[in-house]
Design a protein around this nucleic acid. Structure first.
Lengths: 342, 342
DNA sequence: ACCTTTTCCGTTAACGACCACGGAAATTTA
DNA sequence: TAAATTTCCGTGGTCGTTAACGGAAAAGGT
């Protein structure tokens, strides 16, 4: 079905292309009557702007500000995905500018977000990790009509253009299923949380809740699952893990657990952790970790840019919710979830 | 970094844009000396064609011929992915034309592929399921300079633009890991193959090989794994499955196995199958199937079109190997691998 | 009635690539 | 040497959209 062009609309409406353009862009200076006529004809003719002509004329480079941390492999992988997309869309006018911040340092977040906004970007990719301050930044973006996409974490009230990430609660639920496979009454579980910044994380909480819900749904003894806040490795030399069969590590520190356990003791437990980072991969390979749930950080980064590309350049509708699959990584499918981008 | 335009090249070289254009398109009618000069300047200026200007001028709709089966939910889901991508890229000039064929009927494949090629498509998405005849079709496409992308199965010798699918061998290997979780010496396994057309499948064979390799790598007793060709449900009333702990169904028929077992007997086995089709999903939900390995058919379809879009319209490099993750689906992450596109 | 302001609309020149057309200069042929 | 080719190259129009600019007509002001 052929689309009508501005010129054709102009002819049908008996006006000039300038007028049609003013109507379609709501630039004013056109009588109500002609406006209605033009809109009617445009609709009937199935008008949609010609992406090629539009961008050729505008000849614009779209600046995307990327507001994420850069302090570990997970975020560096996100960055790689973003850079990959940016490169791919480079000659279509996409340009990514990074404003990496330090999660421990609120000032660094505020400073960088401020710098980012001052640059007047056309779109923003951000990780809304700062519970209180992120909404403020989003408010400023909304005010300036700058579309923004969340990666990793979501704050749906902030009304982002899209969210790219994972369902954390469900990932905990799935973890319980995997780890308890073959058991009829549930296995004794220690949830290991190192007492660093990650322990206050909202994501962490939801994963744990998901895990516990699995036991609840099966009427298994809730006492089987215990949370431990670990200060240092001396924890593991105590007798706390006696009788425990499962170690559930709801963040990327599973490799740390293996190391701190020492002396091949990790073979006594079923262990599941998060994020396919190198130290975890090593543990998967040598068999000390059984499962890793991967969040596909590279794909997240890639999709966040792709979403903004679609919005800004192609002006097409975008998926508001891009949930990454709960990707189960084991020693056996490691190579493939690694080599494959998707 | 700004890219040089044709006009700028012309100016620098002291020739007209027409000449530059002839050089860049190798249309001849230009002296060797000027040709070299133009190419040098183009290279130095980091020239690449402006996608917007190019497509505006050409104003072309690219016909993509899609040569796949349509006989089950898996392929219909592939089709949905393709349609989704086609719709998304519609106003960029992409148009998908379907030539669905019947896998049982060689004539239908030949007829449809012939029809497809006669339409002179700009690109082709195909499932090379016909071992002997697919290469012939590919040869014709190569002859006519029509790029083609394989989905689901690969024949790398045919030199496709890209392959979108899964690593079948590894998926079998992973299946063995999941099903034997918690066991130290391997569990007794029956591989169930219904004696229909699927049984001759190459994909099927590779999955089984992967499964067996897992036992081999662990020095488990190979006799633990037995293949059964099943004619009909009477098989299950015999005593063949006595002592068997695992049922590995290397295709999408796991639901059939559950049904044919009957009387809740499926609860006695650990069962894994392939493809997240509705009957399998139902079995996952009621707990009769433990794991499904999903091949992400919708994503496959989507990516195959996206690949051709990149090649034809954006003229960018494309990923030659797009391996889908070995997505493990359980009752617990079902909703999410369902609702999520990626 | 005349001047000023506002409202409304048409004209036009890009954006970069593409290619048909024609024509000058160089080369070959008669 | 003139005519006929061949080689090589420039011109100009087009794709659809955008937006600056200017101008006519209508409305308002004195």
């Amino acid at each position: 079905m052929k689309r009508i062009t501005i010129k054709e609309i102009a002819k049908k409406a008996g006006v000039s292309v300038g007028t049609v353009d003013r109507v379609l862009h709501d630039r004013g200076e056109v009588a109500e009557k002609t406006k209605k006529l033009v809109l009617k004809i445009a609709k009937e003719g199935n008008y949609s702007t010609n992406v090629f002509a539009r961008n050729l004329k505008l000849n614009k480079t779209y600046k995307l500000a990327v507001l994420i941390p850069d302090d570990n492999e997970y975020w560096r992988t996100q960055k790689i995905g973003i850079e990959r997309a940016a490169k791919e869309y480079e000659h279509l006018g996409i340009q990514a500018l990074f404003y990496t911040f330090d999660r421990q340092n609120l000032g660094s977040f505020l400073e960088n977000s401020d710098k980012a906004i001052k640059e007047e970007p056309d779109g923003v990719v951000m990780a809304p990790l700062m519970g209180k301050e992120s909404p403020t930044v989003c408010a400023r973006l909304t005010e300036n009509d700058i579309p923004f996409v969340f990666v990793d974490s979501n704050i749906s009230q902030a009304n982002p253009l899209a969210f790219v990430g994972q369902d954390t609660f469900q990932s905990g639920y799935l973890s319980a299923k995997l780890l308890n496979y073959g058991s009829k009454k549930g296995l004794s579980t220690a949830i290991i949380i190192y007492s660093d910044y990650d322990s206050k994380n909202k994501t962490l909480r939801e994963r744990i809740n998901g895990y516990k819900k699995y036991y609840e749904d099966r009427d298994w003894d809730q006492a089987l699952v215990t949370e431990y806040i670990v200060e240092n490795k001396s924890f593991f030399s105590q007798e706390k893990l006696k009788g425990v069969e499962i170690l559930f590590v709801p963040n990327s520190r599973a490799h740390q657990v293996c190391m701190d356990l020492g002396e091949g003791r990790e073979a006594n437990y079923r262990i599941l952790g998060y994020d396919q980072i190198q130290p975890n991969v090593d543990c998967l390979k040598n068999g000390s970790i059984d499962f890793i749930i991967n969040q596909n950080p590279q794909l997240q980064g890639y999709l966040s840019v792709q979403t903004l590309y679609k919005k800004l350049i192609v002006s097409s509708d975008v998926e508001e919710l891009n949930l990454m699959p709960l990707e189960v990584v084991t020693k056996e499918n490691l190579a493939y979830s690694n080599s494959s981008f998707y």
